[in-house]
């Protein structure tokens, strides 16, 4: 499926085509397609349970039951992994894990390392710079359970930074962080944008979305709207996004998954 203008300019950092996802039989996302511009900060916005985090996970291939595809700079995920950094939600991991801050950040370098390779001095330097950028260098030897919520978030961001990616996918980086961390993240966004990098964030705060981001993708089980803030941040789109789902669409899609109708077609 070629985009009509894909030959005229460089391929989009992230282009999603017909992405559908479900949880057991419940449809979470139905037929989402969009393409984002390069060098912008982009927010994925929607109510609770709208499928925002699921969308990011689907894009990164972290969830089963996916239909459709995502391409990165015109290529598949496996070819472009080095260029993509994913920042998951903090709740996902065991903060009691015996590991210190520097080691967590160094994990960001593992994608580039062979099985038997150890992080080199260069890797350590990169990790150091990432930690300094987020003002976490002083904590480098702390065990991660001894950090505050905001500090934990900054460690995650430093790890993504150490990956030296060109596309950053972040799952609610602003959730439950202190003011200092929020400021640090904003600074980081500015810095990354200057370097021409693209940032996609799941975001839930409508008050700040216009201020922090250039672009918005409205999601509520399906794509409502996607585009520059000034164009799509309208009352109409907000109403559609937060105004509840289309019950008939929801019911029938669930029915479709329950009967496994999506697998019953010989052709498509």
């Amino acid at each position: 499926m070629k985009q009509p203008n894909s030959n005229t300019h460089t391929p989009s950092p992230l282009s999603v085509q017909h992405l559908s996802m479900r949880y057991h039989h419940k449809p979470v996302l139905t037929d989402v397609s969009f393409e984002i511009p390069e060098g912008k900060t982009i927010a994925i916005v929607g109510p609770n349970g709208a499928g925002k985090s699921t969308l990011l996970k689907g894009i990164m291939g972290l969830e089963p039951n996916i239909e459709g595809q995502a391409s990165f700079f015109g290529e598949s995920l496996d070819k472009k992994r080095q260029a993509i950094a994913y920042v998951p939600q903090r709740e996902e991991i065991d903060w009691d894990f015996p590991i210190n801050v520097l080691d967590v950040v160094l994990m960001g370098r593992h994608g580039q390392l062979k099985l038997w390779q150890r992080p080199s001095q260069l890797d350590i330097d990169i990790a150091e710079q990432a930690l300094k950028d987020l003002k976490m260098w002083d904590f480098k030897n702390r065990q991660i359970s001894q950090l505050s919520g905001g500090q934990q978030q900054r460690v995650f961001l430093a790890r993504a930074l150490a990956q030296q990616a060109t596309l950053y996918l972040m799952d609610e980086p602003f959730a439950g962080v202190d003011v200092a961390t929020e400021q640090a993240i904003i600074e980081l966004f500015k810095e990354l944008k200057l370097q021409g990098k693209t940032i996609v964030c799941v975001h839930h705060d409508l008050n700040t979305v216009g201020e922090y981001f250039d672009w918005i993708i409205f999601i509520n089980a399906r794509l409502i709207a996607a585009g520059p803030v000034e164009e799509v941040l309208t009352k109409e789109n907000l109403n559609k996004t937060y105004g509840g789902r289309l019950s008939l669409l929801n019911d029938l899609t669930e029915q479709m998954y329950r009967t496994q109708l999506n697998k019953a077609h010989d052709t498509d």
Binding site: K57, D78, Y86, E92, I93, I99, M107, G111
Partner: peptide, 12 residues
Amino acid sequence: AFHPSLALSLGI
């Protein structure tokens, strides 16, 4: 062990 989904996203 620390973070399976990160490992997955790194291509492991």
